[in-house]
């Protein structure tokens, strides 16, 4: 790691002021410290957000939705019985995310802003497109873990976060604050649309801090579930994951959301797929139609074609589980 200065911010305003050019926000450090050790990030100053009061924990107020502070450690989200009652999908999504140590250290904001795990991107010596190079080395390299859909040319990384699909399935919004302004956007828009061909994964602006995630009241009416396939039983990023949520009555799903992790550079959602399911009595055939729409534009690479049948089966399992509940 290159030398850097370290400062522990006492408030959002102070952190925003300290986050000048060349600085980076530090939460649990589980991704950032790894990037710095690997030579992929070299901030001159780290602004530690973990001491800021008021960005930790969650609240539920009728009319204001469910608010989760960005600095809440993942383990607190996982262990909270109250949160599991309001939003059970969070516990399901965290059950197989990383390890206990990483969930003790890692935070909600950091999980959403973690960078991708493409082995070419993570290797400092490889000048891949995302790092300013001319091409994606995964295209004709080792690509078993890479994207099957939504890549639009540039980069074949996949979105690694287990929480992002789960929260997007409940219409999560994310609040950001800088020294000058505050804004709240749909969580899906925190992830850079690959079609824009920008060499960045997130739309957070320099100097901004993620302060909270908000689930609107209407989305808390949905029941959600999360299924994840890994190449071993533990401590592994998703090969494919599926977050599904819907209001369920008489075996019919309504207001359905289906969001996939591990298949595209961003959490992958196709609204037309949800319309295949809405209002229909659940059947495996309905699930298969939704999965076909989700993956209609899939173009697998040499080693990742297995993700198509895997994703289809996980969509079926997730929707069947919702319908049976």
């Amino acid at each position: 790691m290159k030398p850097f200065a370290y400062v522990r911010a006492g408030s959002v305003a102070e952190a925003a002021r300290l986050l000048g050019k060349g600085s980076a926000a530090l939460a649990g450090g589980t991704d950032l410290i790894g990037l710095m050790k690997g030579g992929l990030a070299a901030p001159a100053r780290l602004v530690d957000l973990t001491g800021i009061d008021g960005l930790r924990g969650w609240t539920r107020e009728r009319g204001a939705g469910l608010r989760i502070g960005a600095l809440t450690p993942l383990v607190e989200l996982e262990e909270s019985e109250g949160l599991a009652r309001h939003l059970p999908i969070v516990r399901e999504a965290l059950a197989d995310a990383a390890t206990l140590q990483l969930r003790v250290m890692g935070t909600l904001g950091g999980n959403l802003l973690q960078r991708n795990r493409c082995w070419y991107f993570r290797d400092q010596a490889v000048p891949c497109w995302l790092k300013g190079g001319t091409r994606c080395f995964a295209v004709d390299g080792e690509n078993a873990h890479h994207a099957i859909v939504g890549t639009d040319g540039g980069c074949n990384r996949v979105s690694p976060s287990d929480l992002a699909p789960a929260l997007i399935a409940h219409d999560a919004r994310v609040s950001l604050a800088s020294a000058r302004a505050a804004r709240t956007i749909p969580l899906a828009e925190l992830f850079t649309d690959p079609a824009l061909h920008r060499r960045e994964e997130h739309t957070i602006r320099p100097g901004e801090i993620v302060t909270q995630v908000v689930i609107p009241d209407s989305a808390l009416q949905r029941r959600g579930t999360y299924v994840k396939a890994m190449d071993r039983k533990a401590w592994s990023f998703a090969l494919v994951s599926v977050a599904a949520a819907a209001r369920v009555r008489d075996g019919k799903l309504r207001d359905t959301r289906i969001v996939l992790g591990g298949v595209a550079p961003v959490p992958w959602r196709v609204e037309a797929a949800e319309r295949e399911v809405d209002g229909q009595p659940y059947s495996d055939a309905v699930a298969a139609r939704a999965a076909d729409v989700l993956l209609a534009d899939a173009h697998p690479l040499k080693d990742n074609g297995y993700k198509i049948p895997l994703a289809k089966e996980l969509v079926r399992r997730a929707l069947a589980r919702l319908a049976a509940a």
Partner: peptide
């Protein structure tokens, strides 16, 4: 780099990877 657990210590009673934790923090 946070992928083995050999450096596990407790901070405020909970296990963390010391290799991914800054001492100043």
């Amino acid at each position: 780099e946070g992928t083995c657990g050999a450096c596990t210590v407790l901070v405020d009673g909970r296990p963390v990877y010391a290799c991914m934790t800054l001492a100043v923090a």
